[in-house]
Amino acid sequence: MSYVEDLIEREEVQKLAEFKQHRTATRLSHSISVSYLSYRVAKRLNGNARATARAGLLHDLFYYDWRDTKFDEGTHAYVHPRIAVKNAEKLTELSDLERDIIIKHMWLATIAPPKYKESYIVTFVDKYCAIHEGVVPSMRSMKKRVKQMFSYSA
């Protein structure tokens, strides 16, 4: 918490709670999950845990519904990291590492690969969290419905 407390308390970050990110997560809860899990992985791999935690928290610092908003400049996967970096720079000074983490976190959906191991960490943790927040609840719900169907037919 000491690495991100100055950011997490900011109104601009707290505002992310108003946006649904994935099925069961707000953009704020998603960003906190990415920040914390990325921090733990970076620490274990002797990476820069502070920069990873901070950039993980700020990687989706944008204020629109990504399902509805379209851009002339490119896809959401390309545009939103650039918006997030601009918004993050208004809150704090970013290192080159933090900037790379935020800009490149959509790698695989975008072309340019990360430059640092911490950027790879946030990239893959972000995907893990998105799957966990989106698919896992759907699977639980499906299992529950299947159970209910079989219990009614008995």
Rank of each mutant, 00 (worst) to 15 (best):
M1W: 07
S2N: 12
V4K: 02
E5W: 07
D6V: 01
D6N: 15
R10D: 12
E11M: 00
E11C: 00
E12D: 14
E12Y: 01
K15P: 01
A17C: 01
A17R: 13
T24A: 14
T24H: 05
A25E: 13
A25C: 07
T26P: 03
R27A: 09
L28R: 10
H30G: 02
S31L: 03
S31A: 15
I32T: 04
I32G: 01
S33E: 07
V34I: 10
L37S: 01
L37C: 01
R40V: 09
R40A: 11
V41Y: 03
V41S: 04
A42Y: 03
A42R: 03
K43L: 12
R44K: 13
L45M: 15
N46V: 00
G56R: 04
G56I: 04
G56E: 05
G56H: 02
F62A: 04
Y63A: 09
D65R: 05
W66R: 13
R67M: 09
R67C: 01
D68N: 13
F71G: 03
H76Y: 13
Y78I: 10
R82I: 01
A84I: 04
K86Q: 12
K90R: 15
K90C: 01
L94V: 06
L97Y: 07
L97I: 10
L97C: 11
L97K: 09
L97T: 09
E98F: 00
I102K: 06
I103A: 07
I103S: 06
H105V: 01
M106P: 00
A109P: 00
I111C: 01
A112T: 14
P114F: 06
K115E: 15
K115S: 13
E118S: 02
S119P: 06
S119R: 02
V122R: 06
F124I: 06
C129G: 00
H132S: 12
E133F: 09
E133K: 08
V136D: 06
P137H: 08
M139H: 07
K144H: 11
V146A: 12
K147I: 08
K147F: 11
M149F: 14
Y152Q: 10
Y152G: 05
A154V: 13
